[in-house]
Design a protein around this nucleic acid. Structure first.
Lengths: 136, 136
DNA sequence: TGATTACCCTACTAAATCTATAGGGTAATT
DNA sequence: AATTACCCTATAGATTTAGTAGGGTAATCA
């Protein structure tokens, strides 16, 4: 299940990409337009800023804005920051690998084999989609 | 994230498919072999039985056994019973569809579009894998 | 320079879900 | 008839989610 955090983050990024100007957009404007709790969105945007997706400007006329071109923001990066691992089990995760404590041999594990395929197929989708693709 | 319930269910099914005999296998044997809490596994096997994947036999020499040939058990069916929706958001789910309350127009929703692709790619993997494929 | 605006941070919490554990009841074999 | 193993209910600790509340701070612009 996709968390609301990720969902809202994607929507916010899409909104910022859809307003063609590079002017900062206020949190309140995004929240209202996308029906998101203002305070919750605030924390999400903060995360995106800390991870290099957004820039911010304080004071009057301030807000958040995209740092990079939407075409240069792959969904893999966004998903990993907002949602965490793309894999459904840690033992097939590229960026968040962890060994299963109940499984003696990964290579012989049927779950491992299946989830490896699922990960790869999801990864392919995320790699083939940038923020620009989402709003077209 | 894949739930332990699904993970254990898949392992149990794989184990049953790997023992070539059609004789019932006791819960305790599966639990021990796959390092699963016995009582938890019990409830999972019950679910699988109620959904037509397993048969059971009581009394001495009893246990659980596969009803169908592993080649005829697609992962789509197993995943839907154990894990629930394959889609990451209800608004792109085939079997568990629900409208998002925050989204006025699904067709214009960037999250919807992305998650539709993710669902399709996962679905393809699950459709191309039967229980027989997991143990080979 | 001072008031305003909007970002930034911490703490808390209600609700839901997950992952079991405990204990006993019941039905079917041998 | 005794044994074996399935079947069912209730409970509970841990974790995560999805916020809410409230205030602090920094940067604008007049």
């Amino acid at each position: 299940m996709l968390s609301k955090k990720t969902k809202y983050g994607l929507k916010a990024l899409s909104y910022l990409a859809s307003v063609d100007s590079k002017l900062p957009v206020q949190i309140a404007e995004i929240a209202e337009h996308e029906n998101i709790s203002l305070k919750f969105l605030e924390s999400i945007l903060l995360t995106l800023r800390r991870n290099g997706f957004l820039g911010s400007k304080k004071g009057k006329g301030g807000g958040y804005y995209l740092i990079k071109d939407p075409k240069d923001i792959p969904m893999t990066a966004v998903m990993r920051v907002l949602e965490g691992p793309i894999a459904m089990v840690p033992c097939v995760s590229l960026n968040f690998y962890e060994k299963c404590d109940d499984c003696p041999d990964e290579n012989a594990c049927s779950v491992n084999r299946l989830m490896l395929q699922v990960r790869d197929s999801a990864l392919e989708v995320y790699r083939n989609n940038t923020l620009a693709d989402l709003i077209s």
